[in-house]
Measured scan of single mutants.
Amino acid sequence: MQRVNMIMAESPGLITICLLGYLLSAECTVFLDHENANKILNRPKRYNSGKLEEFVQGNLERECMEEKCSFEEAREVFENTERTTEFWKQYVDGDQCESNPCLNGGSCKDDINSYECWCPFGFEGKNCELDVTCNIKNGRCEQFCKNSADNKVVCSCTEGYRLAENQKSCEPAVPFPCGRVSVSQTSKLTRAETVFPDVDYVNSTEAETILDNITQSTQSFNDFTRVVGGEDAKPGQFPWQVVLNGKVDAFCGGSIVNEKWIVTAAHCVETGVKITVVAGEHNIEETEHTEQKRNVIRIIPHHNYNAAINKYNHDIALLELDEPLVLNSYVTPICIADKEYTNIFLKFGSGYVSGWGRVFHKGRSALVLQYLRVPLVDRATCLRSTKFTIYNNMFCAGFHEGGRDSCQGDSGGPHVTEVEGTSFLTGIISWGEECAMKGKYGIYTKVSRYVNWIKEKTKLT
């Protein structure tokens, strides 16, 4: 034993070699072989497995989906700052455009905790909710729209109204504003409101030439003092309507412009014939205590009207009353817009006519005020429907199939267009061939041609 100890002390290297040989010859039971080890760690190889990531292109799944990435790591994937920024906006807080917040056709661009709407022409605001041009839906104005110097929408209202708090709607500024039905039992019968379409306001006024200088022999019209197929109006439903009495009662109609003036057809009036105007009328054979009678003290036909040349060209006249009318729910003026808007309103496509005229061709006159909704007829169809001249200051309205029309005794009465609950004068009943005849239409004086003249002559002093 002493000898062994001496050998170990003198030859430590020998001992180490012996131990190493023993270990190498022993069977290893701690580690699995290569094949079995792979069965336990069965993990798919990654895209760049075996390579240094710093030297390969980034992978979106590896960089940002398996674990949260930084902007720089995302930049490695896209290799483009702009594309990385677009991805980053949604990656950080989701897609803010998912709810489609942009209105009126706006395009949404996502941002971090926010979004941006790219608005089409005519709109602005956070969600493109603000109209900035009158060309689109009248700028959301209830009545009139004008573009300011910086191309912003400025709404306005006709006389007797003021802008509401929203700067879009119009509200009454006087007790009985024009064009409004205020009798409670008839307010439910107000005709369907007309909503502004998209309009090209630059070209809204037709490029028409008034044929002022045409000389033409007097034409022989049949029954051209021209509501057939209409309905009984309720008291106060058309408070701007008046009836004219002269040699015979209810020979023509008219509309209240203001307390002192009536507008009617020029062919209705004769110099030297006494005319009485009755406002607030409903049943011409009954006294309903809503009527107001006034005498006409002055007749002003349009300066281009000449019955000797043509009885229905420039067929418009103004009547001055001896005493002002007292405005109330049964006696209310009709609204008159400017030339541009009167023309736009007419193009809405349908209007209402009213009167006490004959209820059928050569038949009896109506006792109760009649009204009828009539569609506008395109000019080409209008011209083809008659052998008589249709001037540019006239328009056609009615039904091709016949059966409904204005008729004798309705002449001078109103053709009105309702705009968001307020009625505007767009025409004056003038003439036609018979009444409600198939293929024939009622012919009306186009008020847009005469609004400046009306307003100039009827100013209240």
Rank of each mutant, 00 (worst) to 15 (best):
V263H: 01
L211E: 05
V199Y: 10
N310V: 02
A397N: 01
D131C: 10
T225V: 09
L20K: 01
E53V: 05
N104P: 03
S448C: 03
R404I: 12
E456S: 10
K39A: 08
E79M: 09
G50L: 08
K247C: 05
I344V: 04
E35L: 04
G421A: 13
G236R: 07
D95T: 12
F221Q: 04
L460P: 14
T84K: 15
Y450G: 01
F55Q: 13
S365V: 13
N313M: 06
T271S: 10
F87V: 12
T29D: 12
K68W: 15
F121D: 05
R379T: 15
C335I: 01
I299N: 04
T85D: 09
L327I: 10
V377D: 01
S255E: 02
E159L: 06
E73M: 03
V154Q: 12
A308S: 12
K234H: 04
S114L: 13
D322F: 01
V77K: 12
H415D: 01
E433P: 11
E66K: 09
N393M: 03
G13Q: 08
N127V: 11
K457Y: 12
T190C: 13
T386F: 05
K126E: 12
L103P: 08
V154L: 11
V174Q: 08
A173W: 05
A164W: 03
D212K: 06
G105I: 02
C128R: 03
L372I: 10
Y371D: 04
W261I: 01
Y341Q: 13
V153W: 09
G351M: 02
N295I: 05
T389I: 15
L425V: 01
N393V: 03
P333G: 03
N42W: 05
T225P: 10
L20H: 02
Q241V: 05
G403V: 07
T194L: 04
Q90L: 07
S148I: 05
V56K: 03
G355H: 11
C141A: 00
M394T: 14
S448F: 02
N328Y: 00
N166P: 02
E320L: 03
E420I: 12
N213A: 05
Y305W: 13
T186V: 06
T332G: 07
C102R: 01
L327S: 03
A436V: 02
I262K: 00
N328R: 01
L24R: 01
H302D: 02
S184R: 06
T276P: 00
D212I: 07
R3V: 07
F399M: 08
R373W: 05
L52A: 11
D33R: 07
V331Y: 00
L369R: 11
C69N: 13
K438V: 07
A317G: 02
Q237G: 10
V263I: 12
V353E: 02
Q370T: 05
S187G: 09
K188V: 09
N135K: 11
V277P: 01
W118M: 11
E98N: 12
E79D: 12
D405R: 15
P414Q: 10
I112L: 14
V248R: 11
Y312S: 05
Q237A: 10
G439N: 08
N313C: 11
C69M: 08
C119G: 03
V359W: 13
I214V: 12
A207M: 06
T29M: 12
K68V: 12
I7V: 11
A26R: 00
H34G: 03
Y341I: 13
L189V: 07
G432W: 05
N310L: 03
L52I: 10
H303M: 08
D93I: 14
Y91F: 09
I297H: 05
F360Y: 06
N166Q: 03
R46N: 07
S430W: 03
L321G: 00
I454N: 01
I336A: 01
R379I: 15
K347N: 14
F31K: 07
L103H: 09
A233R: 05
L163P: 04
E35F: 05
V359F: 13
H289D: 05
T417Q: 04
Q216L: 10
H302Q: 03
G125L: 02
N393S: 14
Q241G: 05
D110W: 15
H303L: 05
